[in-house]
Design a protein around this nucleic acid. Structure first.
Lengths: 111, 111
DNA sequence: TCCGTATATGTAGATATTCTACGCATCGTT
DNA sequence: AACGATGCGTAGAATATCTACATATACGGA
């Protein structure tokens, strides 16, 4: 992320990755591109954030990785969501809703 | 925060504190109570998060602190929002809107 | 009077996440 | 041949939050 946005991803990156992978098997580099595109350039996930996060999610059993060829014939690590990962994504989405509702309650408090 | 919510505050605590202080001078302990009440128990700011955050915000010139007596006659450190702090709060609120919009874009992407 | 709970401020150390800045390799285009 | 984009990765630093602890006062009930 650039310096203006350096604090943006906090805590949401895992959920965003899980969501994008939920759309279908996809490799790491493409995940960061998808997140960027869908968020209209808002999220720009750096490689130093992306790959450690992917390894973390795989270690926790939320993602599965398989080496396959891309459209362009290059090898890449394709990630898929596991059943455990789907549950985790659903839980994180519920939490996100509660969190944003709670933030909204505070931000909209009048004096 | 309890363990279920241990990752919730990430990046939002400063904004929530600034917003609560913007409602009027208030001391640290009361800030955590207010945040908890307004958010309907969702945010439960621990002392180990609260006080370092207050010192941080004061160091950055966003809050000013004055020792005064509470209603119950005890001494407490009352925080007020500085002009700089008000600008910071406004910036953080704008950022929060963009962030939550960007997250919503990704979470609502259909397969 | 004594004890526990709430109020009130604070620190120390651990943990986790993200960032910047690298390295390495391949592919396609100029 | 050079360069940018693609693709995977790590090392080390910075930062925020947490748990756990320390200290002190006020107040109500036993």
């Amino acid at each position: 992320m650039n310096e203006d946005k350096s604090e943006f991803l906090k805590g949401t990156l895992d959920m965003l990755i899980l969501k994008v992978v939920a759309l279908g098997p996809i490799h790491g580099y493409a995940i960061s591109q998808r997140i960027r595109q869908i968020s209209r350039e808002f999220f720009q996930v750096q490689q130093g954030s992306l790959y450690p996060a992917l390894h973390r999610l795989e270690d926790r059993g939320w993602l599965r990785a398989d080496w396959k060829d891309t459209d362009t014939g290059r090898e890449a690590k394709f990630y898929s969501l596991t059943a455990k990962g789907r549950k985790q994504l659903e839980a994180e989405m519920r939490t996100w809703e509660k969190l944003s509702d709670a933030v909204a309650l505070i931000l909209r408090t009048a004096e």
